[in-house]
Lab assay of single mutants.
Amino acid sequence: MKVMIRKTATGHSAYVAKKDLEELIVEMENPALWGGKVTLANGWQLELPAMAADTPLPITVEARKL
């Protein structure tokens, strides 16, 4: 699914347009965010693609819901 990742004042957030859902990312498998699992505030887990740590945000990526 397409997910937009952006930086907020409190960390990172994910927006899933198909579900009209925006949630804070509360847990990251990798400190650089990319190439691992993230957990959203509502409990969803997404697998993000591997990208460079300095990838500019906001960005829309293809993520997989676990």
Rank of each mutant, 00 (worst) to 15 (best):
Val26Trp: 04
Lys18Asp: 15
Lys18Ala: 15
Thr60His: 06
Glu27Cys: 13
Pro31Tyr: 07
Ala32Arg: 12
Gln45Leu: 12
Ala50Trp: 15
Val26Tyr: 04
Lys37Asp: 03
Ile25Gln: 00
Lys18His: 15
Ser13Ile: 13
Ile5Val: 08
Pro56Lys: 12
Leu33Asp: 03
Leu21Met: 13
Lys7His: 07
Val16Cys: 14
Pro31Gln: 10
Leu21Ala: 09
Thr8His: 09
Ala53Thr: 10
Met28Ile: 08
Met1Thr: 08
Met51Ser: 04
Tyr15Cys: 09
Gln45Ala: 08
Val3Ser: 00
Leu24Ile: 13
Met4Val: 13
Lys65Ile: 15
Pro49Cys: 06
Gly36Glu: 03
Ala32Met: 13
His12Val: 11
Glu22Gly: 06
Met51Leu: 12
Ala53Asn: 10
His12Tyr: 15
Leu40Glu: 00
Val38Gln: 00
Lys19Asp: 15
Leu46Glu: 00
Thr8Asp: 07
Ala50Lys: 11
Leu66Tyr: 11
Thr39Met: 09
Ala17Glu: 14
Glu62Asn: 13
Ile25Cys: 02
Leu66His: 07
Ala52Ser: 12
Pro49Ala: 03
Lys2Trp: 14
Lys7Cys: 08
Pro31Met: 08
Val38Met: 03
Asp54Phe: 06
Asp20Phe: 11
His12Ala: 06
Glu47Phe: 13
Val38Leu: 03
Lys19Phe: 15
Ile25Phe: 03
Val26Lys: 03
Gly36Val: 06
Tyr15Ala: 07
Pro31Cys: 09
Leu57Gly: 02
Ser13Val: 14
Leu48Ala: 00
Glu47Leu: 14
Ala53Phe: 10
Val38Thr: 00
Gly11His: 05
Lys65Glu: 10
Ile59Lys: 08
Ser13Asn: 06
Gly36Pro: 01
Glu47Cys: 14
Val38His: 00
Met51Ala: 04
Asp20Ser: 10
Arg6Tyr: 10
Leu40Met: 05
Trp34Asp: 01
Val61Lys: 01
Lys19Pro: 10
Lys65Val: 15
Asp20His: 13
Ala9Phe: 09
Tyr15Met: 08
Gly11Pro: 00
Pro58Gly: 03
Gly11Tyr: 05
Leu57Ser: 02
Lys18Val: 15
Thr55Lys: 04
Val3Cys: 05
Arg64Gly: 05
Leu48Asn: 00
Thr39Arg: 10
Val61Ile: 10
Thr10Asn: 14
Lys65Asn: 12
Ile59Met: 10
Met28Lys: 11
Gly11Met: 03
Asp54Thr: 09
Thr10Ser: 13
Ala41Gly: 09
Thr55Ile: 07
Ala14Asn: 02
Leu46Phe: 13
Val26Ile: 13
Arg6Ser: 13
Ala53Pro: 13
Lys37Met: 13
Glu27Ser: 13
Gly35Trp: 04
Met28Cys: 11
Lys19Arg: 13
Thr8Lys: 07
Leu57Val: 04
Lys2Arg: 13
Tyr15Asp: 01
Ala14Asp: 00
Trp34Asn: 04
Val16Lys: 01
Trp44Ser: 00
Leu24Arg: 13
Arg64Thr: 12
Ala63Met: 05
Glu47Arg: 09
Val61Asp: 00
Val26Arg: 05
Pro56Asp: 08
Met4Thr: 15
Gln45Gly: 03
Val3Asp: 00
Leu48Asp: 02
Met51His: 03
Lys65Phe: 15
Glu47Trp: 14
Gly43Thr: 00
Glu62Ala: 10
Glu27Val: 09
Gly35His: 02
Lys7Trp: 09
Met51Tyr: 06
Asn30Lys: 11
Gly43Tyr: 04
Ala50Glu: 12
Arg6Gly: 05
Ala14Gly: 04
Tyr15Arg: 09
Lys65Thr: 12
Ala17Phe: 15
Gln45His: 09
Met28His: 12
Trp34His: 02
Leu57Trp: 07
Ser13Thr: 13
Gln45Val: 15
Ala32Gln: 14
Val38Phe: 04
Arg64Ala: 08
Trp34Gly: 01
Glu27His: 13
Pro49Thr: 04
Ile5Pro: 01
Ala32Lys: 13
Val16Tyr: 14
Pro56Arg: 10
Ala52Arg: 10
Leu48Trp: 02
Ala14Cys: 11
His12Thr: 07
Pro56Phe: 07
Lys19Tyr: 15
Lys37Trp: 15
Ala32Phe: 14
Glu47Lys: 10
Thr8Arg: 08
Pro58Met: 05
Ala63His: 03
Tyr15Glu: 05
Val61Glu: 01
Met1His: 06
Gly36Phe: 05
Glu29Leu: 06
Leu40His: 01
Ala9Gly: 12
Asp54Cys: 05
Trp44Tyr: 04
Ile5Asp: 00
Leu21Thr: 10
Thr60Gln: 08
Ile25Gly: 00
Lys7Thr: 06
Ile5His: 00
Trp44Glu: 04
Lys18Leu: 14
Glu22Ser: 09
Val3His: 00
Gly43Pro: 00
Pro56Tyr: 07
Glu47Tyr: 13
Glu22Asn: 09
Leu66Lys: 05
Pro58Asn: 02
Gly11Asp: 01
His12Phe: 15
Arg6Phe: 13
Arg64Ile: 14
Met51Glu: 03
Lys65Gly: 09
Leu57Ile: 06
Arg6Lys: 14
Trp44Asn: 02
Pro58Ala: 02
Ser13Met: 13
Thr10Ile: 12
Ala52Thr: 08
Glu29Ala: 08
Gly43Glu: 00
Thr55Trp: 04
Glu23Phe: 15
Ala9Leu: 12
Thr55Asn: 03
Ala9Thr: 11
Lys37Asn: 08
Thr55Gln: 07
Thr39Ala: 04
Leu40Pro: 01
Asn42Asp: 02
Trp34Val: 04
Ala53Trp: 13
Val26Leu: 08
Ala53Asp: 12
Gln45Pro: 00
Val26Met: 07
Leu66Ala: 09
Glu29Trp: 06
Thr10Leu: 13
His12Arg: 07
Leu24Asp: 14
Ser13His: 09
